[in-house]
Nucleic acid binder design. Structure first.
Lengths: 206, 206
DNA sequence: CCCGCTTCTTGACAATTGTCAAGTATTTGC
DNA sequence: GCAAATACTTGACAATTGTCAAGAAGCGGG
């Protein structure tokens, strides 16, 4: 019974610990998205939370661990973004329209988060530390795109003429350039993204 | 006569001044490509030259001006990269093969410079300072791609079904993902890039 | 040879940063 | 309610950075 009690307590403590970690990581993510990876100090992050800067070292060993934890948390947010569309669409054109609209929507609503993702992916090319996690997220995104694309081919009754990596590269390129335009203040960026995404899909079929 | 002499001297001084600026900018570019934008200090740059760190403030007002100057110098290097291929190719397939090979070649040979370009383009999304210059280079690259694409359509005797921005987004996406793979140690990255570039071009035709 | 102009070096500055130790406050178990 | 564990704050540290001033070194003209 004492054992079980201790466990329960330990569990509760772990949960509280994990909860606060998540809370701080959320504040960190918001700060990173706002300022960019390199312009964000631990003090900046703390100011976006209700705590002081020292607490970050109580919950995270160092800055790298915090960032890594953030990145992993971010991942969970995005990889299921389009799954509802895949699940509900009953025709190829419906899927195509839904995907284009969803991409344009997230470009409009989650600008800074997408900007942060590209920032982190680039930093991983210079800092070995994050390369593994970034590669893992990148792979998840590729799979997410692949689920869309294969379902689209299925609904079209056609075969695919591309690899997952190729399909992802094309759509990611289109999205990234739309993000660049959107952040430069181009009001047509979201609309054009929708159009371009719908244009890409058919070219992937055999 | 004195006037002319002074002019000649002034000219020589200006030339020497500009020469040293170029020399320092070259050292800076090399350092930036090696370490990445944010990991490069003025002292790092100076160590890649034969001078001390103070001299950079003699030739450049501040760090921003140095970086901007570097970026502009970098631009001149890349925008004419594929023009020889456009000029010499006499058949669509020859152009297609030459373009794919050239892309794969520069991925192999100029890895760090490409990595730097993507780094700078991303930084410009967080720092207003470089946005104009980056946008200008990006536009030049789009034009460079567009020269390839239009020539390819011309040699194919077909019309184009895409905008310059769309064609650039697709090919840039493919190239960037090849760069990611190449830097992660994937030995097939260059070969696949060649293949994928050749695969993209026909989809751009009507 | 010397004066003046340029080029470059040296050293210092203030600000920022990650890190961490010491101490305070809060919660928890009994 | 009290002692101990947990949670958090504060302030300091060493290192790094962009910037700049003071002056040394090199050089060209008279």
């Amino acid at each position: 019974m004492e054992e079980r009690k201790r466990e329960r307590i330990a569990r509760r403590q772990v949960d509280k610990f994990a909860e606060r970690r998540d809370q701080l990581a959320a504040a960190a993510l918001q700060t990173l998205a706002e300022l960019g990876f390199v312009n964000t100090s631990l003090r900046d992050i703390a100011q976006h939370s209700e705590f002081s800067h020292g607490v970050l070292h109580y919950y995270f060993a160092d800055k790298s661990e915090l960032i890594t934890y953030c990145v992993r948390q971010y991942k969970a947010e995005c990889v299921t973004r389009y799954d509802a569309i895949v699940a509900t669409a009953t025709a190829a054109d419906e899927l195509r329209a839904g995907f284009g609209a969803a991409m344009a929507g997230t470009l409009r609503d989650d600008v800074t988060m997408h900007r942060l993702w590209y920032d982190l992916r680039n930093q991983s090319l210079f800092e070995e530390k994050f390369r593994t996690d970034v590669a893992e997220i990148d792979h998840s995104l590729q799979l997410m795109i692949w689920r869309i694309v294969t379902r689209y081919a299925e609904l079209s009754g056609r075969d695919l003429a591309v690899t997952p990596a190729f399909a992802y590269a094309l759509l990611d390129g289109v999205f990234q350039h739309a993000l660049l335009r959107h952040l430069s203040g181009d009001p047509a960026a979201t609309h054009d993204l929708d159009e371009q995404v719908r244009q890409v899909l058919p070219t992937l079929l055999g």
